[in-house]
Design a protein around this nucleic acid. Structure first.
Length: 288
DNA sequence: CAAACTCCCTGTTAGC
DNA sequence: TGCTAACAGGGAGTTT
């Protein structure tokens, strides 16, 4: 399941083949993949638009597009009538993006195919059809309610402390809440909590100052490391990175710190992996 | 406000 | 061997 590091990796890989390319045509094989506007309108609007940049916000890929440079308009004129559009793609569970020659036979679960002006295609393939694509004038229309980027310079420990204190409830579901923090999914929530030695069922208001600070550093460390490793290979072909989870998917295998078997429980309806020894339910014993 | 639950989907896997 | 049912999970929306 692609999370922040996997999406970041994909964005970096797509820049070289896609930036500067103009979209000549769009074929939609599964209409519900297109969230907005309506599929016909979506395909019509994109034609003739050139990709200027590709970035990431939370787990969304954000493509900035402007109309193909036209020599028939003076630049001032063009500026006045040139609407920048943003194409946002969320891979959800099984979405994949690839750039291939258009002669390549269509894959089974290709949902939307963008014809580029160099004979290649950007293909969105998605087994489970959970993935969505938007075309909007302002990316905030889609990502407006999402919390801060954990790797932003502006996202400091005081900011995180304040954020945690503004909420009550169980820590793991909170980490998964995109309105709280952007881009953390099931894998990296478990990984960060293991690193911080915090039990996933702990309540936020029971965390010590030190634990909150450690969690802050753990989240950033885990995400940075995973980006360096180009993501986690979940075995579903979404991305084939080298990040090796310490707890996620390691049920019954020994903890890398204390060799106790990793446990799998359900927290907030999500499969959750943790070390019962390193991450005690009670938290750190009071010093006295 | 928090948290549980439902829905969207299909490939994989456990159970019979 | 072959079938069915349960399961996985991000996130929006709904209900408790």
């Amino acid at each position: 399941m692609p999370e922040l590091p996997e999406v970041e990796t994909l964005v970096r890989r797509l820049r070289e083949p896609v930036i500067g390319r103009t979209i000549e045509n769009v074929t939609i094989y599964w209409k519900r993949t297109v969230a907005r506007p309506a599929p016909k309108e979506f395909a019509r609007m994109l034609r003739g638009y050139t990709v200027r940049s590709i970035d990431r916000r939370a787990k969304y890929l954000v493509f900035e597009l402007t109309p193909r440079a036209s020599t028939s308009l003076r630049s001032a004129q063009r500026a006045a009538v040139t609407p920048t559009l943003f194409l946002l793609i969320h891979l959800r569970m099984s979405g994949k993006l690839s750039v291939v020659d258009r002669t390549e036979p269509r894959a089974k679960h290709d949902r939307v195919v963008f014809d580029l002006d160099d004979g290649r295609q950007l293909r969105f393939n998605d087994i489970r059809k959970f993935g969505k694509i938007w075309l909007v004038a302002d990316p905030e229309m889609v990502t407006g309610a999402i919390g801060p980027e954990p790797l932003d310079r502006a996202f400091t420990l005081p900011k995180f402390r304040k954020l945690v204190k503004s909420r009550s409830g169980i820590i793991k579901p909170l980490l998964l809440n995109q309105a709280f923090l952007a881009g953390v999914g099931n894998i990296y929530a478990d990984e960060a909590l293991w690193r911080a030695k915090i039990h996933p069922r702990r309540k936020t208001d029971g965390l010590t100052e030190v634990e909150v600070a450690t969690l802050y550093r753990s989240i950033r460390k885990v995400l940075r490391t995973a980006i360096e490793d180009e993501g986690t290979d979940a075995g579903d072909g979404v991305i084939e990175g080298d990040y090796q989870p310490r707890v996620y998917g390691r049920t019954d295998q020994p903890c890398y710190r204390c060799h106790q078997p990793i446990q799998r429980i359900v927290v907030g309806q999500r499969g959750t992996h943790f070390c019962p020894q390193c991450q005690p339910q009670r938290g750190p014993g009071r010093r006295r």
